[in-house]
Write a protein that binds this DNA or RNA. Structure first.
Lengths: 223, 223
DNA sequence: GGCGGATTCAAACTACTGTTTCAATCAAAC
DNA sequence: GTTTGATTGAAACAGTAGTTTGAATCCGCC
């Protein structure tokens, strides 16, 4: 369709500008005129290079996935210490979701797509989310020890994911509640450490409740 | 401006239809023509009764808050068992976020507004979110015992909120991952019990790490 | 019955959207 | 230097959005 090595300046500028605009405004609210304005290109450029607005959006999502940094090697090693694996997973996810360096819109874009999916969600899902999910479920299984109810594993994994993604999804509200966004690497690492420890505690408790039926001090069902 | 007792049929039908449409499509994607169609009203009805589209949206948001069910009494009692208070909080939040009964769009609408805030976020924030947040921070403080770093309390509280709201925010992805949505009250209660227990484990671990500096087996910072 | 304000209605209006058009421009091949 | 194909540009196009208009209708009240 078009150039092998996108040396094409406009092509790439459109991609970058579109990522930023789509991330801030959302697919529908973003106008191709604003994108082209930010990219210093003509309105017709989008249709020429990407077919239509949706094509540009798909290209941006693919770019987002392509630019994802390599995962921590200990993450994929099933023999590594599971606590270390969990920490690597959480730290990587927090970075992906909150990191402001590089094109900072990757995380924002994925967050949007999760809450308000377009037809292009499947791109992100199959290429990025599902593999990660498999890894996480493996780690949680390791931490839970002997095979428990699969539903317990899934819920614990979801508790971990929820803590990470909510850091992005709830950002506007957190800001207004006076909770500052972690900006530098140290703050991100500190947050990742908290979520890791919190989750280790949660998983440990789920493990105990799952194995011995003796003493769940408070199972819930309040009077 | 208009009637005291909204016996006015169209007024109320517009409110209900708008809630549903806004929740599924989002503020921008929702068209007043679709809303009026669903309400069986004329297109001009929105402007007549609510001034403009934004006015209708604000009215829907206020309605959402007004219709929130009373909180569990043990929630507000500082002398109640903190574990019970936490469970009551989580169960209430899960219900608010996932419940499909009644106008089922309340949770969806708040979730949208958190991720992609409009000017009307402040309505929800001041009337609904901020008070709840204060209650939760109080409960977590209780559970953490002696006053720790305030940042620890906030992070634990955020871990709890994150687990709850992500059940709504990540719903489209979870669906595709084969994680079914809790439909009946029992499933909601079961999920609430998991999050409560998981969080009690997490808070307990945060408490230990915060007080004695002796033995955090894995603080994070992997080799 | 007729008056008067509130409400509903079909239609038009204005603004903005994504897209298309076609001439102008550029870059290299011959 | 001309030709060829790819790219850019300004303008126009078609569709849809929220809103406005002004007549028609309803409904309680004198």
């Amino acid at each position: 369709m078009q150039a092998r090595e996108e040396s094409h300046a406009t092509f790439r500028r459109l991609l970058d500008a579109a990522g930023e605009v789509f991330a801030t405004r959302g697919y529908r609210d973003a106008t191709v005129r604003e994108i082209c304005g930010a990219a210093g290109a003509n309105v017709a450029a989008v249709n020429y290079h990407f077919g239509d607005k949706a094509g540009l959006y798909r290209a941006v999502l693919r770019e987002t996935h392509r630019a994802a940094q390599e995962p921590d090697p200990s993450l994929l090693d099933p023999n590594a210490d599971p606590q270390d694996r969990l920490h690597a997973f959480v730290h990587g996810m927090i970075r992906k979701v909150l990191d402001q360096g590089r094109p900072s819109w990757h995380g924002r874009l994925m967050a949007r797509e999760m809450v308000e999916p377009t037809d292009a969600l499947d791109i992100i899902l199959e290429e990025s989310i599902r593999p990660s999910w498999g890894v996480l479920v493996g780690i949680v299984s390791q931490l839970l020890g002997q095979p428990l109810d699969a539903a317990v594993t899934v819920r614990c994994a979801m508790s971990i994911v929820g803590q990470c993604v909510s850091q992005r999804h709830c950002r506007p509200v957190m800001e207004r509640l006076g909770i500052a966004e972690p900006r530098d690497a140290a703050a991100l690492a500190s947050l990742a450490a908290h979520i890791t420890q919190y989750s280790l505690g949660g998983i440990e408790r789920a493990r105990r409740l799952g194995t011995d039926d003796s003493g769940p001090e408070h199972t819930g069902g309040h009077p």
